[in-house]
Write a protein that binds this DNA or RNA. Structure first.
Length: 254
DNA sequence: ATGGCTTCATAGTGAAGA
């Protein structure tokens, strides 16, 4: 089973790249973030022709998440139960007995911002919800754009980023809290190239200089982690014309 | 230097992303 997550930064703009890539990669499950598409405009038909069922929760201009799967997903939950949120950032679905949670964690803007407090409260709600979901579903994967670089090695210049949003201690503590629930970072189950990142700023030629962060993650429950055989970042898409600023992350399970 | 690019939005001194 192959799982993938990709922040597409507009599904409308990135649909041709997505269709080409899933045609080549053939993932079984794909989580998308920042679709920026209202549900009425979601490209259900194009994805069906590519072999994917889709569940989605979108809104105009911002946010928006979706789960694509080769077998029909069910038991959808939109948003974090009990956490009032106008922003479409979370979607859970069950695919062939595996619980898949697609998350687009708030950016936070800066550590002084109200959006940062929203980010931390969102992460606290996610943590509480995941605790419940893990009890119900031993086979669980949490995929998405976490907007958190967990460790120094996930940041091109940790001294520059220390204390900044995406790399502040409270954010990293929230990420470690998710690991404390028994989730494993699939990317770190395997040897990886140094300076592996999943996001590069559009500005300042950041991609070509590899000035990036690893902020997109696939966390796996113990049961799924035991089946993991590979994980990697699909860096090639970031080099295309009109790329998303994020690269897909892939995990392969037996 | 708080910019730099990209998207969706509207016609804003844009907003938001990360």
């Amino acid at each position: 089973m192959k799982l993938a997550t990709w922040n597409v930064n507009s599904l409308n703009v990135r649909l041709p790249q997505l269709l080409t890539w899933v045609g080549r990669e053939q993932p079984d499950i794909v989580c998308l973030q920042e679709t920026k598409t209202e549900d009425a405009n979601f490209p259900t038909e194009e994805l069906r022709e590519a072999g994917y069922h889709a569940l989605f929760a979108g809104q105009r201009a911002y946010n928006g998440v979706a789960v694509l799967a080769r077998v029909p997903p069910g038991d959808m939950i939109v948003g974090i139960p009990g956490f009032a949120d106008e922003q479409k950032r979370a979607l859970a679905a069950t695919v062939d007995g595996t619980r898949v949670i697609c998350a687009y964690v708030p950016n936070g803007e800066s550590v002084e911002s109200d959006k940062y407090r929203y980010k931390l409260s969102w992460l606290a709600a996610l943590h509480a919800w995941l605790g419940q979901e893990l009890k119900a579903y031993p086979r669980l994967a949490l995929l998405g754009d976490y907007n958190i670089a967990p460790e120094d090695r996930d940041v091109h210049d940790p001294r520059l980023w220390e204390g900044k949003v995406l790399f502040s201690k409270p954010e990293r503590a929230a990420f470690r809290g998710l690991l404390g629930l028994g989730l494993r970072d699939s990317f770190r189950l395997f040897e990886q190239p140094e300076l592996s990142f999943s996001w590069w700023d559009y500005r300042m030629n950041a991609f070509n200089r590899n000035r990036g962060l690893r902020i997109d993650h696939i966390l796996l429950s113990e049961e799924l982690a035991g089946r993991a055989r590979a994980s990697r970042i699909e860096k090639s898409l970031r080099g295309l014309e009109r790329p998303s600023d994020h690269a897909p992350v892939v995990a392969e399970l037996i």
